[in-house]
């Protein structure tokens, strides 16, 4: 494996290979790179800092235990870590049977605007790819009609089924189904317009 040039960060796959070989420092570097993204996602779903920190630890412990089976050809490490974080967080919410259906809306417009101020969203160790991607997706979500965005958020970050989303919002089920489909289609169009390939 090539050594990174001075000043050039080691790529994710190289760090994962070091983790698989038992290198704890490499795991620490991956935490520095993705820990904040993982924690933020967990917090978004469970709404409790201590639990989000436990879940964040669990995500990186899973990386430690199964780094050897990570296949970079199948996807990015960031996506793999965040999927695990998403799954663990929803499991935790369901285990506590305290689904956050009344959680306040996330202001995607403000979140997108905050990117202009690095002090608000400082993540200097995070990957450039992750940051650019996040910018594009936040911008797209901010442009989505609020009812579509709300339905998608409750489903994906609240772990609710479509009938549960309908009950939470007081809308007919058919309306919720239509909004989710229309919202996802609109997001595809917005991301294509922003030059982002969701499958990348």
């Amino acid at each position: 494996m090539d050594e990174p040039r001075p000043g050039q960060p080691e790529d994710d796959a190289a760090l994962v290979a070091r983790v698989a070989a038992g290198d704890q420092d490499a795991l620490g570097l991956l935490y520095d790179r993705f820990g904040q993204a993982v924690y933020s996602l967990c917090l978004r779903i469970v709404h409790e800092g201590a639990t989000a920190e436990e879940l964040t630890q669990e995500v990186f412990v899973r990386l430690w235990r199964s780094a050897a089976s990570f296949d970079a050809a199948k996807g990015r490490l960031s996506t793999w870590l965040l999927r695990i974080a998403h799954n663990l967080s929803l499991n935790e919410v369901r285990r506590r049977q305290s689904r956050p259906v009344t959680a306040p809306d996330l202001d995607w417009e403000a979140a997108a605007a905050a990117l202009a101020d690095p002090s608000v969203d400082a993540d200097p160790a995070g990957s450039v790819w992750l940051r650019e991607r996040a910018t594009a997706v936040r911008g797209a979500l901010a442009q989505l009609p609020a009812p579509q965005r709300k339905a998608i958020e409750l489903a994906y970050f609240g772990g609710l089924s479509q009938p549960e989303v309908a009950a939470a919002l007081g809308d007919p089920l058919g309306t919720v189904k239509s909004r989710i489909r229309a919202g996802m289609q609109r997001l595809r169009e917005l991301l294509v317009a922003a030059g982002v390939d969701a499958a990348e």
Partner: peptide, 14 residues
């Protein structure tokens, strides 16, 4: 596309 949402959650430091 759903994975893309995971990346977009605004960052909060632990």
């Amino acid at each position: 596309l759903a994975d893309a949402f995971l990346l977009a959650v605004p960052r909060i430091a632990p």
